[in-house]
Nucleic acid binder design. Structure first.
Length: 428
RNA sequence: GCCCCCAUCGUCUAGAGGCCCAGGACGCUAGGUUCUCAUCCUAGUAACACCGGUUCGAAUCCGGUUGGGGGUGCCA
């Protein structure tokens, strides 16, 4: 039988990384087995399930490259099917009406559990059991006539011909109900796999308070989709050897549910940042160019841009870091005043920088080697360490305490810009 | 409270009775490279939760304890 997996989010306006990991695992399982990956939008909460909220889910999936094989099924269109199933269960004696709790709100439809101990196989946790006493009947249609999640979920999985349900740990206990529902509907339940949760440093469910928790935030902050994909896959699964940074094709090839952990995993921002860096450094040149152009529309000189990228690349860990290269393109850029003050402190520094400026102005060729020779010569003549000149010059031209090799930086900026910024030092 | 699940370095994990006085990665620390920052290189640090069994032999099997997580809705 062909594998059919699904991702069934309720659109809330945000896509939590825990949900996205479930989507990724479903996608991987389907792709590994040459099956189908489907999307079901559980949009029965009309308040929150706005078109924008649905679009957020779609965007997140597109960004991470989770392609869907069939048109999405919107649960809100399925109400009649859900109610028909309830009616069928009523007819077959698997359900009954009751004013549960005597609320006076009218009668709800309750599903009659089998009244025996139950068990099911979980691909991650193994054989799970529960006693009949802990499996009470439950509502499948509210007294207001609306179907409940459990009913809708099972009826839709049936309609979509789902073979494997890979979802969060919070659904483990629901699974007994779902299995019973499938059986009462004369259907074979799908295979289940419950993923442990993603937790924070305190072991509690990872939330927005712990940092970026939604897919959209990672995208906005300049992380790479492939890095997030790779990191999320490794959060609870490993291929069994020491491979970590893997191309997607390899992950698809090696993925299996039996290597998924049964315990919660902590999201480690440090390691994710490392992972992101692995990917960003390998990003195609065209991507780097596009990112720089987007950040600095004034970058029109291709050769110049190429030089800047070469200098900045190892210092960019997240696309947002590109903003730190502003001094290459603009005359107004952030200045680290504390560092500048400190570097200008030693007596005579300004004068020596001014002298250096004049020497730079007179240079026959404004290249890194010549600049370095000139600066070192002046430093030696003044009885200083090269660093005593390098730091103030760096602050003067870039506003920053750190950055690319100074002499290459100066060469790329060019004589005019460098001289102007050194002159400007007098104003500080 | 009751039910279910889980338990290897700080973190993510390898390990399915001897290959493990436990391996890799991130982190951290110390060196190296260097004009700074980042990168890079080298080394180091650090774990089988605890107590009992089973066995010639246990991180691996069993029981208990402790700790953690999930569930316990006419929410999803």
């Amino acid at each position: 039988m062909k594998v059919r997996c699904r991702f069934a989010p309720s659109p809330t306006g945000h896509v939590h990384i825990g949900n996205m990991r479930a989507a990724i695992y479903n996608w991987l399982y389907a792709r590994h087995h040459g099956g189908a990956f489907l999307l079901r939008v559980e949009d029965t909460d009309r308040e929150r399930s706005t078109p924008e909220a649905v679009q957020t889910v779609l965007d997140a999936m597109t960004w991470l490259g989770l392609d869907v094989d069939e048109p999405a099924l919107y649960q809100s269109t399925r109400r009649e099917a859900h109610l028909a199933a309830a009616e069928r269960l009523l007819q077959s004696g698997h359900a009954y009406k009751l004013d549960k709790g005597g609320t006076g709100k009218g009668e709800a439809v309750l599903f009659r559990m089998p009244g025996r101990d139950m068990s099911f196989h979980d691909e991650i946790k193994g054989e799970l059991h529960k006693g009949a006493a802990d499996l009470p009947d439950f509502v499948i249609v509210r007294s207001d006539g609306n179907p409940v999640f459990h009913l809708a979920n099972v009826v839709d999985d049936l309609a979509m011909d789902i073979t494997h349900v890979i979802r969060g740990d919070d659904h483990v206990e629901n699974t007994y109900r779902h299995v019973a529902l499938f059986e009462a509907l004369d259907a074979r339940p799908p295979t289940y796999a419950h993923l442990p949760m993603i937790v924070n440093a305190q072991g509690k469910p990872y939330s927005k308070r712990d940092g970026a928790a939604f897919v959209g935030e990672f995208q906005e902050q300049g992380y790479l989709a492939e890095a997030l994909f790779n990191y999320l896959v490794l959060l609870g699964w490993s291929p069994g050897d020491d491979r970590e940074v893997m191309p997607r094709t390899e992950i698809v090839e090696r993925f299996s549910l039996d290597r998924v952990q049964a315990k919660p995993a902590q999201f480690d921002m440090k390691k994710f940042l490392w992972m992101n860096n692995e990917y960003i450094q390998r990003a195609p040149e065209a991507e780097w160019t596009a990112r720089f152009r987007a950040a600095f529309p004034e970058a029109t000189d291709d050769a110049y841009l190429e030089h800047v990228i070469a200098l900045m690349k190892p210092r960019v860990k997240v696309w947002a870091d590109i903003a730190g290269a502003a001094y290459f393109f603009r005359e107004t850029f952030p200045i680290d005043h504390d560092a500048l003050r400190k570097r200008l402190e030693p007596a005579g520094t300004r004068e020596r920088v001014a002298a250096l400026r004049d020497r730079f102005a007179a240079l026959a060729s404004f290249d890194a080697a010549a600049l370095e020779a000139e600066l070192r010569a002046l430093a030696e003549a003044a009885g200083l360490k090269p660093a005593d000149l390098i730091h103030p010059v760096r602050l003067a031209v870039s506003g920053q305490a750190g950055g690319p090799s100074l002499f290459h930086l100066l060469e790329v900026l060019g004589r005019d810009v460098v001289l102007r910024r050194l002159d400007r030092l007098g104003g500080f």
